[in-house]
């Protein structure tokens, strides 16, 4: 079952203001995406691993899909980038596959970029309560009607998950065989799964709208909040120091 990946805790990262963390994530990702220097990328990964340790998080799940996507990136880059010194050559029948040092380097850079991207994202979501994030964004100026879309969408996730399971069970009870994957079967499976899910979900919109509007949702352009999230000096400090840290890491490793 797909749940929120937030892991409650009380580490420094957990206690930072959600918007501070969001900005850190965006800075980090921006640097990761615009840089293809191998030692620097490796250094960033090191930084990330230290943060994981500091936040008291274990290794993130879904490692199989992460590994398979990494292998796929590495394969594409090493197969198609033919630069640098040739390393080895495989003969598969009439096909000759050569590996080049440049390809391997490009592959390593791309894999590190992928790992840095998802690693930092996971660190962010694992240490940030999505509810706090949405509230903080609204308090920082995101129009609250849009902000509540996120909260409402998250509110309904467990329900949709449950409905999805029920629909699959109902199909099995009717002897609809979902094993095997011909194109026609795939299309039928998609239709049978998605249509009941969509209709059931849209059926909730009416009473949800009545309930929310009945409680003055959208009545005023602004609203107040029971609890205020505020930027602490610590947040400002870290936000200022982080780019410096990245910059010096870049200088040391170049």
């Amino acid at each position: 079952m797909r749940r929120l990946s937030y892991v409650p805790g009380s580490s420094l990262l957990h206690r930072l203001h959600p918007i501070c963390k969001l900005l850190l994530l965006l800075i980090y990702t921006g640097v990761v995406w615009t840089n293809s220097h191998l030692p620097f990328a490796a250094g960033l990964l090191g930084l990330l691993l230290i943060s994981f340790w500091a936040a008291g998080l274990g290794f993130m799940g879904r490692s199989r899909r992460i590994i398979s996507f990494s292998v796929m990136i590495l394969l594409v880059q090493t197969l198609f980038v033919r630069q640098g010194a040739p390393l080895c050559q495989l003969n598969v029948g009439r096909l000759t596959v050569a590996f080049w040092s440049g390809g391997l380097a490009a592959g390593a850079v791309a894999v590190l970029r992928f790992l840095n991207t998802i690693g930092s994202s996971y660190l962010f979501i694992a240490t940030t309560d999505p509810n706090h994030l949405a509230v903080a964004l609204m308090q920082a100026g995101l129009p609250y009607r849009q902000g509540f879309m996120l909260i409402t969408a998250l509110r309904f996730l467990p329900l949709f998950q449950y409905e999805l399971t029920q629909i699959q069970r109902a199909q099995m009870a009717k002897g609809i065989d979902l094993e095997g994957l011909g194109p026609r079967k795939l299309a039928a499976a998609v239709r049978h799964l998605l249509i009941p899910l969509v209709l059931s979900a849209l059926g909730k919109v009416d009473s949800l709208a009545i309930s929310m509007e009945g409680r003055a949702f959208g009545l005023h352009p602004k609203r107040t909040y029971r609890v205020q999230c505020r930027f602490s000096p610590k947040d400002w400090l870290i936000l200022l120091l982080f780019p410096l840290l990245l910059h010096s890491l870049g200088l040391i490793l170049s």
């Binding site: 999505p130 509810n131 909260i151 409402t152 909730k204 309930s211 929310m212």
Partner: peptide, 9 residues
């Protein structure tokens, strides 16, 4: 419906 009139977490 108790489920479709609650909108927060």
């Amino acid at each position: 419906d108790p489920d479709s009139q609650l909108c927060t977490l």
